[in-house]
């Protein structure tokens, strides 16, 4: 599978599949929990929000959530790119020969963007810890 499997996240299709589902469940639970917090907090202001996110438990949860988001996005975008930026697909628009190179370029851009976001997110989450 050459370059293609080298750019997946898990070591196999089964791993990618599991990563995709587990990260979706984590994100789902997190956003439902967050909704609950918004509804149940009597005074919704910056102080309450800052206090919530300053505790270590919440920092760990936030890190996990950003990690899940990045992993979920990578598996999903990689799968979209390998569906639509392929020689067979791009031949229709006369770009068949460039598809593989173009996809690699897009993969690099998305990868840098997502993992840059991960690093930046970690810096924000753990600031002042």
């Amino acid at each position: 599978m050459g370059m293609n499997s080298a750019t997946t996240l898990g070591r196999s299709g089964t791993h990618d599949w599991i990563i995709q589902r587990v990260s979706a469940v984590i994100l789902g639970i997190y956003f439902i929990g967050l909704m609950g917090w918004f509804v149940c907090t009597p005074v919704l202001d910056h102080a309450a929000w800052a206090a919530l996110n300053a505790c270590t438990a919440m920092r760990i949860v936030n890190t996990l959530v950003v990690l899940s988001l990045v992993a979920h996005a990578w598996v999903g975008v990689w799968s979209i790119l390998t569906d639509y930026v392929t020689p067979a697909r791009m031949r229709n628009v006369g770009l068949g020969d460039y598809a593989t190179g173009l996809r690699f370029l897009l993969e690099v851009v998305v990868f840098l963007w997502l993992f840059g976001s991960l690093a930046w997110g970690a810096v924000i989450i753990w600031a002042g810890a």
């Binding site: 499997s5 196999s12 299709g13 799968s79 569906d83």
Partner: peptide
């Protein structure tokens, strides 16, 4: 042989 991201997961 089917465990890669394409064979069945596509």
């Amino acid at each position: 042989n089917l465990d890669d991201p394409f064979s069945v997961f596509r």
